[in-house]
Design a protein around this nucleic acid. Sequence first.
DNA 1: CAGGTC
DNA 2: CCTGG
Length: 308
Amino acid sequence: MNPADAGSPSGTLPFPVEGGQRVLREILAGGQSFLWEPITATTWKGIVGKHACTLELLSDHHLTWSASGSTSSKEDVKATIESYFATSIDFAREVDALPWRSDPVLNQAVGQFPGLRILRQSPDVALLSFLLSPLKRIEQIRAGLLEISRRWGEALDHGLFAPPSWATLASVPEADLRMCGIGYRARSIHQSADYLSQQDGYLDSLESLPTDEARRKLIALPGVGRKIADCVLLFGYGRLEAFPIDTWISRHMRESYGLDSFTDDQIQLFARAHYGSAAGIAQQFLFAHARNPATGSEVDTSSDKRKK
DNA sequence: CAGGTC
DNA sequence: CCTGG
């Protein structure tokens, strides 16, 4: 490494988020990732790869970042950050291609969170994170993940810890994992770690597989069902067609599309057919919409047919 | 019970 | 089935 690069690389990303801080909060702490914490009204502290990062959204179109504790060159850090925020994806274009024009339900959700986008996390961290997702509250998932990271992860700057690798987790006794306040999910993590440690490059190999095949191989992991698999595909592998169906989405869609007696499998088929190849983006809007009761304070860019 | 998996 | 809230 070059000592001159060892300081705090920083930069600015084009980051169109019309919805400002409210939408940034939804992106960083709305259930995609559990590694971000608000510091001030406009700044966040968190982890990207092996970098402790500080973010600030100054205008609605640029995100400034600063990463520290790195032995990588500034270019490498920059590339890592850009990949994480998926700056190569034109989300405005993707969203425009969704059927919001003919779908008032989607239209309202998109109008409520303009600029919402999908992070591209690492498959490893996404898998570990979402194995904890049955822990209900986001704060609880976060606490469990932070504790696991603190105990077996890599120390970074600012007292942050990167989540441990699956190889590391494979050597952690299940009983020790249980002491992280994650309850019976400790078993899934322990068994998945065991499974992954036996097959070198298992998660990497999914990268080049078609989505449904990768999905099957994720579901083969202990504790991973369709919902967690779809979360890992969407947030860890950048498969925008993946459509995780949790209880929020399930209820919200049944109610708002009149799919009263639909099973989750049928909702999944409906979603694929209706939203298309970027269904996962639609899912994020619906998810955010379902969990954030409309306060009326948002700038509503859609037609004003809120309230029924 | 809620959340997810089995 | 498991297990916090």
